[in-house]
Design a protein around this nucleic acid. Structure first.
Length: 433
RNA sequence: CGGGGUGUAGUGUAACGGUAACAUGCUUGACUUGGGAUCAAGUGACUCCGGGUUCGAAUCCCGGCGCCCCGACCA
């Protein structure tokens, strides 16, 4: 994409109403825009990052064998009454409204109830199980206090996965597979080294649940970690002896850390299947309630966590896997020949499907560099009279200090393309100048 | 939901109760082109909303709304 075709602008100052680092940088760099407290729009760059995170998660969900769906935001009160989750006393984050005829409806904060009802129509026999279903859907939660930029909003995208199994054993097998899947996801998005599977309270559904907590000062939670423990322990259960069940380690050797919950996995038992009547016939022909689990990840929160964790004083530093572009191609004004060569390189990169943001703006170099650092694309490629005289382009990684001049051929070799350029004439589909 | 703070050009900040200023951005021109340059001329605000006090309110008072922080809460 040519930067002159990108509507979002960067700014030097962070808005005064944002304190959280993730919001300050994402707004300054033009990734997001605040609409209300805890409500953010995603601008072109932000949407690209969000979509990259979504793609990584989707790939793993599909690998689990889960089916993707899209359920509604508008909710039928009657099914929530069956599970006793309609009342504001039992679930205080509801946004409620009503139809013109007075019928009450809610905006979904989660989707156990509607999905369980859907599954009733499709699961009849133990032969229909296990099943797993996921979606990326906007959740609405009337938080008493939104905070920390995009980390805790009132409206946010969530990947929610639900599982339906015939028995506890089958459920546990799936649950464990999801845990492994989550580890891979957080590894892929660049949070792996700081993210811990964490034993946490099981809520009203099970003894324990597991959260995936990323160590960061911006975290809202406190967890206890130990180098030899297979999982961390959430502060909320740290004083309960059962929290150490199965561990031979001593409580005093655990260390407290601030962390942000980027994902969670819950065993739900038969609470929802019983309340809503999701039963199947077992091999003896007897009706049994399905055993359920739910598993969430907030892509927006993941995005904010990456910014919190990986940015520096100059701006954001995206991991390649989620970055909005692979290359930030910067042209420094010079001879007409330099301009032509830069356009040609941009067209080549585009044809090779190497995502490139081409800074073709008429600006001084300093400003372009400052913007590039703020936006945080992994590879900065500069083309100027100087680099051409030196034999090619200058390449600098966002997270490294040193820059080197290499030939264009060497540059392209760094980015193996899945779509090798053909000899046909259709490779140049960008606008020429 | 308790407590604290705050609201002024697009953005960031100023202004004793005396009639809104500076920076930045943006526009035009000049000069520049490897780290947010320089110069010149422009542009841009019913000071969040509604009341009140006062000769006079951005400033003081009351109410509302928004936003931020701490705590509680967080299926």
């Amino acid at each position: 994409m040519r930067q002159t075709n990108l509507f979002s602008k960067t700014r030097k100052d962070a808005p005064k109403d944002e304190v959280a680092k993730n919001a300050q940088l994402l707004i300054r760099a033009g990734y997001i825009q605040k609409e209300l407290a805890g409500v953010y729009s995603f601008l072109p760059l932000g949407l690209k990052v969000l979509n990259n995170i979504v793609s990584i998660i989707r790939e793993e969900m599909l690998a689990l064998g889960a089916n993707e769906v899209s359920l509604t935001a508008l909710q039928d009160k009657s099914i929530w009454e069956k599970t006793d989750r309609w009342s504001d006393k039992s679930m205080d984050v509801w946004f409620k409204s009503e139809l013109k005829n007075g019928t009450e409806i809610g905006l979904a904060a989660t989707h156990e109830e509607p999905l369980t009802r859907i599954m009733k129509d499709h699961v009849r026999s133990y032969r229909d199980l296990p099943r797993s279903v996921f979606q990326f859907q906007t959740k609405f939660r009337n938080e008493t206090r939104a905070k920390s930029g995009i980390m805790r909003g009132r409206e946010f995208l969530m990947k929610d996965l639900y599982s339906f199994s015939a028995d506890e054993k089958s459920h546990q097998e799936f649950y464990d597979r999801v845990a492994e899947s989550y580890k891979r996801i957080f590894e892929k998005v660049g949070l792996g080294s700081k993210t811990f599977m964490t034993r946490a309270s099981g809520g009203s559904f099970a003894k324990f649940s597991h959260e995936f907590q990323t160590i960061t000062d911006a975290g809202e939670d406190a967890i206890y970690t130990h180098a030899d423990a297979p999982f961390a322990i959430n502060e909320e259960i740290f004083n309960e002896p059962e929290a150490f069940e199965g561990l031979t380690l001593e409580k005093k050797d655990f260390e407290a850390q601030n962390a942000i919950e980027v994902g969670n996995i819950f065993s739900l038992g038969t609470r929802f299947s019983e309340a809503l009547g999701l039963t199947f016939l077992d091999s003896q022909g007897k009706p049994q309630p399905a055993v359920m689990g739910s598993y969430g990840i907030g892509p927006g929160r993941v995005m904010g966590t990456i910014v919190e964790l990986l940015s520096d004083e100059k701006g954001i530093v995206w991991p390649e896997s989620v970055a909005p572009f692979k290359i930030h191609l910067i042209e420094i004004a010079g001879s007409p020949d330099t301009h032509e060569k830069t356009v040609a390189l941009y067209n080549m990169l585009t044809a090779l499907k190497i995502e490139t943001l081409y800074d073709d703006r008429d600006m001084r170099p300093g400003e372009k560099f400052a913007d590039a650092d703020l936006i945080g694309i992994p590879f900065r490629v500069v083309m100027s009279d100087k680099t051409i005289a030196g034999g090619g382009v200058e390449v600098k990684k966002r997270n490294e200090e040193s820059a080197v001049i290499i030939s264009e051929k060497e540059l392209l070799a760094k980015f193996p393309s899945s779509n090798p350029v053909s000899n046909s004439a259709d490779t140049d589909h960008s606008f020429n100048s």
